[in-house]
């Protein structure tokens, strides 16, 4: 029999409304309030062994202390799964449920599920970390919410893992994973096209993400002859032993190497580890990627005030936007700290 611990606030535990929101944390044996609905849904497969109750205000007055007490209680009971709420659109209650689930999952490794309304504050704070079924905005939706909570909770307790968010009735956690489709690609593609041609509804299998935020160009350099300029490339040019282990595709790392080292270009020589373009000509002469020769000439002529003594490099090949944004920010911080005022970026 699957053993379940259930978390509730003072209202759903029957202690009282807002006037009792400072009710302290307590442990009760067996099912309480909505736990009785869950109990019916569980049948013989699971039982609620314990219900943890904490007032909404009491929880948020001391979240760390309450979480520590809750975690200690759950660790001792060692259930197969923890269910919290459902909290519907209640702000403080939803946040408490989600915080309990996050702590149980991350500190004890026990699966935990709550249920909230998709616009509830808990989704913004915990949506990517906590398994949440979608509920209506009020307790009028208890029956459906409890059903989803029980389904998903028991599936996790059985070790079966999540289904896609829409099949689970969950609020998406923001990650995508491969599954076997029910129909061949060609059938799905033609069905979707026919729906478009007939003005019938269809669902794209990939939602168009929000467009990447445009980056406003920096103001023009006023006087290049008084400016320190850095050379940056996504062309994967590294010392041949690739000491920083920059990836040849899907890069997560960047590095910088002294221009003096690149100018010498021996022991070690530089080469490109980029797996997205034919790098033979760059390997033969790295100036084709990082235009050090031309930039030095401009520096000597006084066109450029000064070349920053390092060049910066990563691999731009299937790099995820998340990592690209992070690396760009890290490089920019370093450049600013080093007094660089302008940069030349060469891409492949």
């Amino acid at each position: 029999m699957i053993r379940v611990v259930h978390y509730l606030n003072q209202f759903f535990a029957g202690i009282g409304g807002e006037d009792k929101a400072d009710a302290p944390f307590e442990v009760r044996e067996g099912a309480v309030g909505p736990g009785r609905v869950l109990k019916m849904l569980f049948g013989d497969e699971a039982e609620i062994v314990q219900t943890l109750v904490c007032g909404d205000n009491a929880f948020h007055a001391d979240p760390e202390g309450n979480l520590a007490a809750i975690i200690a209680a759950i660790a001792e009971t060692a259930p197969d799964v923890v269910l919290a709420g459902p909290a519907f659109n209640a702000g403080r209650y939803g946040l408490a449920c989600a915080a309990v689930c996050a702590a149980v999952n991350e500190e004890l490794g026990i699966p935990a599920v709550t249920g909230v309304y998709p616009d509830a504050p808990a989704v913004d704070v915990f949506g990517t970390r906590v398994v949440m079924v979608a509920t209506r905005d009020s307790a009028g939706g208890m029956k459906d919410a409890a059903g989803r909570l029980a389904d998903v909770g028991l599936r996790l307790a059985r070790g079966e893992g999540l289904l896609p968010a829409d099949e689970d009735g969950r609020i998406p956690m923001g990650y995508r994973a491969n599954r076997v489709a029910d129909k061949p690609v060609a059938t799905r593609a033609l069905d979707m096209l026919m729906a478009r041609l007939r003005d019938e509804p269809f669902t794209s299998e990939i939602e168009l993400p929000d467009q990447v935020e445009p980056v406003p160009p920096a103001p023009a350099v006023a006087d290049l002859s008084k400016t320190t300029v850095a050379l940056i490339t996504e062309g994967g040019l590294v010392p041949e032993d690739n000491p920083d282990r920059i990836e040849s595709s899907s890069a997560t790392k960047w590095a910088r190497y002294p221009l003096a080292m690149l100018a010498k270009n021996e022991n070690p020589a530089f080469k490109s580890i980029h797996a997205g373009y034919d790098s033979r000509w760059v390997d033969a002469d790295p100036n084709r990627l990082v235009p050090l020769d031309a930039a030095r000439a401009l520096e000597e002529e006084g066109v450029i005030g000064k070349l920053h003594e390092y060049f910066y490099v990563t691999t731009g090949n299937g790099t995820t936007v998340t990592h690209a944004e992070r690396m760009g920010e890290e490089i920019a911080i370093q450049l600013i700290a080093d007094g660089v005022q302008a940069a030349i970026l060469t891409s492949t």
């Binding site: 995508r176 994973a177 491969n178 799905r188 478009r196 299998e205 168009l208 993400p209 990447v212």
Partner: peptide, 26 residues
């Protein structure tokens, strides 16, 4: 290509007109 954990932007390039897409996985 949403990364190993699946959290990233799944497409290399998009145009707003491509709003009917069949996915063949990551």
């Amino acid at each position: 290509a949403a990364g190993a954990d699946g959290y990233d932007f799944p497409l290399f390039y998009t145009v707003p007109e491509a709003d009917a897409i069949v996915s063949i996985g990551s």
